[in-house]
Design a protein around this nucleic acid. Structure first.
Lengths: 150, 150
DNA sequence: CTACTTTCCGAACCTAATTCGGATTCTACG
DNA sequence: CGTAGAATCCGAATTAGGTTCGGAAAGTAG
């Protein structure tokens, strides 16, 4: 994990399709060396994958919300079962398991407010272990793509 | 946005480096057609980009937390200034602007608990507009990569 | 100093991306 | 229906990039 590795990770976080040759030239190394470095980063688990990002509004999921959830009792069995239930819901795009007052933060992307209402009332509150729900609409969400070492 | 487009978006969300030829063959279309479809998806803003994902623990940011923040007064000027302040912090990897009790949810990735403590006490609470902070450590975070239409 | 290991390079080869002219299908309108 | 126009799709040719591999160079340990 030297300077070269960090630079490659940064470049690929920015643009996952940047060509090997291009990066090699930018760093002043041979393409074969660059390729070997990236292979190694993958094997060591530093780079976990490459993914395209789609615009949520463009695929009819223009409304996002964060739903804070508390379950009772907060045992491992209940937590894990509820987590599996949440992850399987198509509206859920991201899920945080937390310490503190709430057990989960559920990040959902839905069509509109009716859809959001349905998700909370028809799906989540149907579960008996659910003790408390608080829904917040998301005005904006920014995600950092380039994350350097601490 | 027909069936072909959806399939391509799904494939690229799963693996952003899947080759054009491979996808074309999987869908039973010519590589040139496939390429043209993807170009169009990009131009229409459906596909917004390709990014590599790095393992946070591998780059020394193994601890994540969610920080709920309330600012006073909740005017546009104060909100926007605080948002800009948060986004510029290297520890912040994702930021939600919300309705409800809290104004922000700040997703941070840090080295350890000391680092987390420093972020909250030395950086955030220095700001006078900050009215309330609640920090929750994140046990686990799963993110869905393949997101279909509503 | 020497043997060993690791990293790197560059040329050759192979596979994929990209372009483009023409064929085909779809659509609107008479 | 029939036809003009537009949009889509295809396949072959070209260009560019990915990948391999033997050997050079540099670093390391004893």
């Amino acid at each position: 994990m030297d300077e070269l590795d960090s630079a490659l990770v940064r470049m690929l976080q920015e643009d996952g399709r940047r060509t090997n040759r291009d990066m090699a030239q930018a760093l002043g190394i041979a393409p074969s060396t660059c390729l070997e470095r990236i292979r190694s980063l993958r094997e060591r688990g530093v780079l976990t994958g490459f993914h395209a990002e789609a615009d949520l509004a463009a695929i009819g999921r223009g409304l996002q919300a964060m739903i804070a959830v508390r379950v009772r009792p907060p045992t491992r069995a209940v937590i894990e079962a509820f987590q599996a239930f949440l992850e399987q819901m198509p509206e859920v795009i991201s899920l945080f398991v937390l310490t503190g007052n709430d057990d989960f933060l559920v990040h959902v992307a839905v069509r509109d407010t009716d859809h959001l209402h349905a998700v909370v009332l028809d799906k989540m509150t149907k579960r008996p272990e659910l003790a408390d729900v608080r829904t917040s609409v998301i005005y904006g969400h920014t995600r950092k793509r380039v994350i350097g070492p601490a």
